[in-house]
Design a protein around this nucleic acid. Structure first.
Length: 561
RNA sequence: GCGGCUGUAGCUCAGUUGGUUAGAGCGCUUGCUUGUGGCGCAAGAGGCCGGUGGUUCAAUUCCUCCCAGCCGUACCA
């Protein structure tokens, strides 16, 4: 046989080996482990507590909606693989997995408009699905937790949402050093765009480009945004992004809006005066370049931004004027209840998703750089967002129904808090493990009785204080060492051993695994380690429950120190 | 979608200037110890060297295309 033939035979043999099915999930979908699930549940309980306190009630809608109810086109006619996951029902109607909880709420409200009391205040949580490229903390299936007020036309409803957002974050134990809620009004932006000559359908694309550029101010800084508003910019990978093509005067006018908000100082964490001065000089530069004539307020306070905006030459523009008024109203409410300048601030760079918002928009972001699993700092984005959507219900009913609401990205927030190590770690105790020494029916029944006794424990007043417990359900002939190892790796606090010898004497061995692990550090010889049976005691069978309770109490006291 | 980087054992990663049988650490299984976790010692299992096509006597290594992952960018109603 030649080398070549030998090689081919080898190849054929290789090919014949049956290919194993690769175990994997679709991109952007994840399996969630016990600790993540418990963390998510505890977060959701906290969110719910806040929403209930604000007077919101739960409602639930299905994961599927008819595609047109989501306000999207069929997947094959518009963008084939972008946005929603869709499928055709057996009656050939297109339906889609919901991509958020707002559109389904609008549908629900419109459908039940005659039975629902307005203002209709509800919250709901659930998984939503987006057919997009996943990123850090971004999945294709993720949990959102929404609150909305339908039938509330006044900016006070928007202000309330900002407050509730802040309160929810505080419920997680975060402080105003950890997060910030930002709000803005679409009207302000629309008015600005109109004022600098970007009104009309023919400028729709440029308006989009401008808004998206503004949105990036935090991340890229003013210099880069100026490029985006002008000719365009190259990113780190040398990829070129086309700009909006504005001239210097137009860019300067946008700059005034963006910079004026930066003058705000925070009551609890005042900016150093050097930074404030720098902001002032940047703003003065922009004003000079734009040709606007503006005087500055004497003192630093929360209203100076409005003060400056009101002097802009295009404050006669009705949209812009309405925007300034709206911002002032929201600011007033937030200021009176001491949120403004602490957890919440006006920020003209807060733009949000572009289509359905009609007035106030708001979002919440963490003030930390979030690392990924490898410890690299990555762009994380906001953890909650929302706004006013006065036109959404109208699509179904034909009548104007004002509404405002927001959604918390629970999955993303959990990922962020986890990566920042700000999440309470999983403190759920493993179960007490009853080891199986004999596999005859009588012995097995005895083990089962022990776990039942522990599970159904009651305190003196008769309240259930059941202890997590299980008997070893693996191979009943498994060696004791194997069972102990199982208990150890499960994080069990206690193992219980009863062989025929103990049974005859009416006793059980109760082993404190936590204490035992501590003692093991001083023992290097295995024989000694085994024979010394560290932290193990022999007690009467009827004292089992009391002994276990005592050890658990001791361990708890130890942990709490 | 566009650009860059990376794909070798369950995990983290070596290595092959193209050559016979591809390595380490951790993890896993078993034994020393037939009734005791940890440590130690010993043995063992586990690889389409991401896939396809090509160049070559010979490809895990070089080339093409594809796929996947990461980062950036764009999009995100």
């Amino acid at each position: 046989m030649t080398d070549q033939q030998a090689n081919q035979t080898k190849k054929q043999k290789k090919k014949k080996k049956p290919q194993k099915l690769k175990a994997r999930q679709p991109r952007g979908f994840v399996d969630r482990q016990a600790s993540d699930i418990r963390a998510t549940e505890s977060m959701m309980a906290k969110i719910k507590e806040v929403y209930e306190r604000y007077g919101f009630d739960p409602v639930e809608t299905p994961m599927f909606e008819y595609t047109d109810a989501l306000g999207k086109f069929l997947p094959d006619t518009d963008r084939p693989n972008a946005g929603v996951f869709s499928l055709q029902d057996d009656d050939e109607q297109w339906m889609s997995l919901r991509y958020d909880l707002t559109a389904p709420l609008a549908r629900h409200f419109a459908q039940n408009i005659n039975d629902l009391q307005t203002p209709y205040r509800t919250y709901r949580a659930g998984y939503v699905f987006r057919n997009e490229k996943p990123g850090p903390g971004r999945f294709r299936q993720f949990m959102q937790f929404d609150a909305d007020t339908v039938g509330a036309p006044n900016p006070s409803a928007d202000a309330e949402m900002c407050m509730m957002m802040a309160d929810t974050m505080r419920q997680f134990g975060l402080t105003h050093y950890d997060f910030r809620v930002k709000f803005n009004s679409r009207k302000l932006l629309d008015g600005l765009l109109e004022a600098i000559g970007l009104a009309g359908d023919e400028n729709a694309n440029r308006r989009l480009t401008v808004l998206r550029s503004i949105d990036k101010l935090d991340r890229l800084g003013m210099d880069q945004v100026r490029l985006l508003l002008g000719k365009g910019r190259k990113d780190d990978s040398d990829d070129f992004t086309e700009g909006a093509g504005l001239d210097a005067a137009q860019i300067s006018q946008i700059e005034i809006l963006l910079l004026s908000a930066k003058l705000n100082t925070f009551a609890e964490a005042p900016s150093p005066s050097s930074i404030v001065e720098q902001r002032y000089s940047e703003l003065k530069d922009a004003i000079e370049r734009s040709g606007e004539i503006i005087s500055f307020p004497t003192g630093l306070d929360q209203n100076q931004t409005t003060f400056i905006l009101e002097q802009l030459s295009f404050n006669i523009n009705s949209n812009f004027k309405a925007g300034v008024t709206e911002i002032a109203q929201i600011s007033g409410i937030l200021s009176a209840s001491r949120y403004l300048g602490r957890e919440v601030e006006f920020d003209p760079t807060c733009v949000r998703g572009l289509e359905y918002y009609t007035g106030a928009v708001y979002e919440c972001e963490l003030l930390y750089e979030v690392p990924n699993e490898k410890g690299e700092i990555v762009q994380f984005g906001s953890v909650a967002g929302g706004g006013r959507y006065d036109g959404l219900v109208k699509r179904f009913t034909g009548q104007d129904i004002p509404a405002t609401g927001f959604s918390i990205g629970v999955s993303r927030l959990m990922t962020a808090l986890k990566n920042l190590k700000m999440l309470e770690t999983d403190n759920v105790l493993g179960p007490v493990v009853v080891c199986v020494m004999d596999s005859d029916t009588e012995a097995l029944a005895g083990y089962q009785q022990m776990v039942q006794e522990l599970r159904s424990a009651k305190d003196e007043k008769g309240n259930p204080v059941g202890i997590r417990a299980e008997m070893y359900q693996g191979n009943p002939n498994a060696k004791l060492g194997k069972q102990m190892q199982y208990a150890d790796r499960r994080g069990s606090p206690i193992a219980i051993i009863e062989g025929s010898q103990e049974r005859e004497e009416g006793v059980v061995q109760v082993k404190d695994l936590v204490e035992g692990a501590k003692l093991s550090e001083e023992i290097t010889d295995n024989k000694e380690w085994r024979e010394s049976r560290p932290a193990q005691q022999t007690v009467k069978r009827e004292d089992l429950l009391a002994t276990v309770q005592k050890i658990l109490a001791e361990q708890k006291a130890e942990r709490d120190v």
